[in-house]
Amino acid sequence: MSEFILVERRDNALWLTLNRPDTHNALNRAMAAQLAKAFQAAAGDDAIRAVVLTAAGDRTFCAGADLKGDAGGTFATGRAENPLVQVYRAMRACHKPIVGRINGAALGGGLGLVSACDLALAAAHARFGTPEVKVGVFPMMITTYLIRQLPRRRYWEMAFLGEPLSAEEAERYHLINRAVPAAELDRHVVDVLARLEANSPNALRVGKQALDLMQDMSVDKTLAYAELMIERLAGSEEAREGMAAFAEKRKPRWASVQGGHHE
């Protein structure tokens, strides 16, 4: 099978690279399956502190569904689960920070991948769009995330007109965290990874899950859930170590990194 996803371990981060540059890294069924499997593997590896999602080349991160290679039917699934849903679910279940390294245009399903990342840094030349209406469909799957991230009027305009955002606009609308010169993209990604690694793995894992759940709760349920989770975190081994390290003015020694377990 062709390796549509390159998997590389760099220190404590797992780098996943979309690897179909000849098709602008368009998503086909095999690629989506390999990507979902890679996120599932990352979720089960306690030594991995973060996942970086990027793509081969410097022009396109992902052009969305492969409309040519699969005869335009990549995500016309019938009763089968949409391949992009499998990827989204694997990303959501991966309770490690997912950092998008967006090296070029992210369109359609590619924009969906960006929106499913926890943090996203993009090269200044990147564009972000939903051109589906131009080929007779609509950005249904990716709307799941985008309606939670973009102002309604702005997203409606993107979806109805099919016109992209610049990287600067994507940053302004909080679709990405930061747009940087392409030559500085790797430096910024590595800096984010270093700062993530300095923090409690257990707190990041529990916190990512909590943020995901709390956004759809009522205020009262959110407060009750938050009270429960902060009590659980405050009594954890990593919280005790973090507070001791703060008092002793030293770097914390996280148990879940050294011992390979979670609270």
Rank of each mutant, 00 (worst) to 15 (best):
R153C: 12
S166Q: 08
P131F: 04
A120E: 12
A116G: 06
L175R: 01
V133T: 14
L111K: 00
L107S: 07
L150W: 06
N82G: 02
Q86I: 00
R89P: 01
G73R: 15
A120H: 03
G73V: 14
G73N: 13
V87W: 05
R172A: 12
L113M: 06
I147H: 15
V114C: 00
R148F: 04
G162M: 01
L146T: 01
P131T: 02
M158K: 05
R154G: 02
L107D: 02
T143N: 10
R154Y: 13
L113C: 09
G72R: 09
E132F: 15
R148N: 10
E169M: 05
V135F: 10
A120I: 07
L111V: 00
N82H: 13
G78M: 04
L121W: 06
L67M: 07
R154I: 15
A167N: 13
F160D: 13
R79G: 11
S115P: 05
A93P: 00
A90V: 00
Q86E: 12
P83D: 07
I102A: 00
T130C: 14
K96W: 00
A159H: 10
G112M: 02
Y155K: 05
L113A: 02
G104V: 07
P83G: 00
P151V: 03
V135I: 14
I102M: 06
R79A: 05
L111H: 04
G136L: 09
I102T: 00
A159W: 14
K96T: 00
F75I: 06
Y145K: 07
C117G: 05
K68Y: 05
C94L: 02
A159E: 01
N103S: 14
W156R: 15
I102N: 01
M140L: 05
R79L: 08
P164Q: 09
Y145L: 09
L113I: 05
D118N: 07
L119Y: 14
A76E: 06
P97G: 06
A122K: 09
V85H: 05
M158Y: 09
P97N: 02
A126Q: 11
T74H: 02
K134H: 15
L150P: 01
G73A: 15
